[in-house]
C-alpha cells in the first residue's frame, strides 16, 4: 500500500514536471514493470494535455470596449481620451 502511494506521489510530480531527473529515472524503471501505474501516469498526462488544449475564449475588441465603457461610466478617465503622449508631442522635427 505504502509502495503504491509513493509511486502515486512520484507520478503526480512527474505529470506536474516537478520530478528531478534522478527520481524520474527511478520512476521510469518502476513503470516498466507496473502496467497499472504506467496507465495511471499516461491517463493523467492526457487529462493535463486536454485541459491545456482547451481553447481560451477570445478577449475580443468588443469585449474590451464594453469593459472600458463600464469604467467610463464610473467616471474614470482613460489614456485614449488624453492628449498624445510626450514622445509623440516632442518628436524631433523632420529634417530636409
Amino acid at each position: 500500500m505504502k509502495d503504491r502511494l509513493d509511486k502515486q506521489t512520484l507520478i503526480d510530480l512527474d505529470v506536474d514536471d516537478a520530478l528531478p531527473l534522478e527520481a524520474k529515472e527511478v520512476l521510469e524503471a518502476e513503470l516498466a514493470t507496473d502496467s497499472e501505474a504506467a496507465v495511471d501516469r499516461a491517463s493523467l498526462k492526457m487529462v493535463v494535455q486536454a485541459l491545456r488544449e482547451s481553447e481560451a475564449p477570445a478577449y475580443t475588441s468588443e469585449s474590451i470596449d464594453r469593459v472600458k465603457l463600464a469604467w467610463e461610466a464610473e467616471g474614470i478617465e482613460l489614456e485614449t481620451d488624453r492628449p498624445a503622449a510626450p514622445h509623440w508631442q516632442y518628436s524631433l522635427p523632420i529634417q530636409d
Binding site: 481560451a56 475564449p57 478577449y59 469585449s63 474590451i64 469593459v67 472600458k68 469604467w71 474614470i76 478617465e77 482613460l78 489614456e79 485614449t80 488624453r82
Partner: peptide, 22 residues
C-alpha cells in the same frame, strides 16, 4: 493617475477575462 488602469488592463486584462469566462 487613473489612466494607468488601462496599462494594467493591457498587462492582465486578457488573462483575467479568460479566467472569468472559464
Amino acid at each position: 493617475d487613473t489612466s494607468a488602469l488601462e496599462g494594467l488592463h493591457a498587462l492582465y486584462g486578457e488573462r483575467i477575462f479568460r479566467y472569468a469566462y472559464r
